[in-house]
Each structure stands twice: as structure tokens, then as C-alpha cells.
Amino acid sequence: MDRMNDTAAARRVEITAQGGRADIEIDGTSIDPSAIKAYTVSHFAGERPEVLLHVADRGDTQWSGMARVTVADVPDPGPAAAVFLEAIDPEALERAALTRPDLGSEPYSLTRAMLTQLGEWARGL
């Protein structure tokens, strides 16, 4: 693995977060908050800390400098969804859907209620 020189790769990053807002500075330079949609900080024992900035899709924002770029594959949700659906008790799903206060009488309302219920169960609600 090709590793960058530690001195050349090191940057001072300061994040001041409060509520839903975070101000980010890199080497004393403020970053436009609208240019970053998220950030992740990680640190493994024996390694240097890393800050991953998730850049917003903005045409007028320009970035320069060195970075280690990691491309991650988005996992296929199919296998996890299959495991989740296999664990669903059909009777419990039907009972929950039929007792929902938002169950309507229009066509496909039971299917809509079941899908809504499954979504809520998937999110732990």
C-alpha cells in the first residue's frame, strides 16, 4: 500500500458542532457550511484520526489539496430486505395494518397500510 508522508498528509481540522449545525475549518480556513452535507470522524488505535467530508453537489464550490480517496460500493439491500421480510409474521402484519388509524377505504389502501407498517418496523418504530 502506498502511504503518503505523514507530515505532508497531516491537516489541522477543527469542527464546532452544536445542534444540527457544524462549522468546519481546515488548517484555519473556514469551509462554507453549504458545501458539506455530512462528515465522519474515525480513529483506530495505532493509526492517525481521519475526517471524511461528504461534499454537497455544488457546481460553484472548488476544492484543492491532497486527499486519500476511498470509493465505497453501496451494499445491495436485497439480501437484508429478504431476511427482514422472512421474519415477518403474516398474521401480525395483517392485524397491524387493519388497525392502523391511517387505513383508508380506497383501492390498494390495505397494501399501502402494510407497506407503511413494514417500513415502520424496519426503522424500529
Rank of each mutant, 00 (worst) to 15 (best):
F44I: 13
D89M: 10
T29P: 00
T99P: 01
M114G: 12
V41Y: 14
R48Q: 12
T70I: 11
D6N: 12
G104W: 06
R48V: 09
L53V: 07
A122H: 13
P90W: 04
D32P: 01
S30G: 14
L52M: 09
V55W: 04
T111P: 00
V83P: 00
Y39T: 04
G46T: 10
A35F: 07
H54E: 12
I26Y: 07
G65M: 01
R123W: 01
A113F: 05
V74H: 11
V51C: 08
G28T: 10
R48C: 00
A87W: 03
R95M: 02
P49G: 07
A82W: 01
E120Q: 14
E47P: 00
P33F: 11
A72C: 01
A35Q: 08
Y108C: 01
D32V: 07
G20C: 00
K37A: 08
G28V: 05
L110Y: 10
A72H: 13
E86Q: 13
S42I: 05
P90K: 11
V71R: 15
A38M: 04
R112G: 03
L103D: 02
H54M: 05
A113L: 02
Y108T: 09
E50H: 15
T99A: 12
G46Y: 06
Y39K: 06
V41H: 13
R21N: 12
R68S: 10
I36F: 05
P33C: 11
G78P: 01
Y39R: 02
D32F: 06
L52T: 15
R48D: 09
V74A: 14
E106Y: 10
R112M: 08
D76H: 09
A22D: 06
A67Q: 08
A82P: 00
V41M: 09
R112Q: 11
G119W: 02
S105Q: 12
V51Y: 04
A80R: 13
T61L: 01
A122M: 09
G19A: 04
V41F: 14
D89P: 07
R21S: 13
T61K: 11
S42E: 08
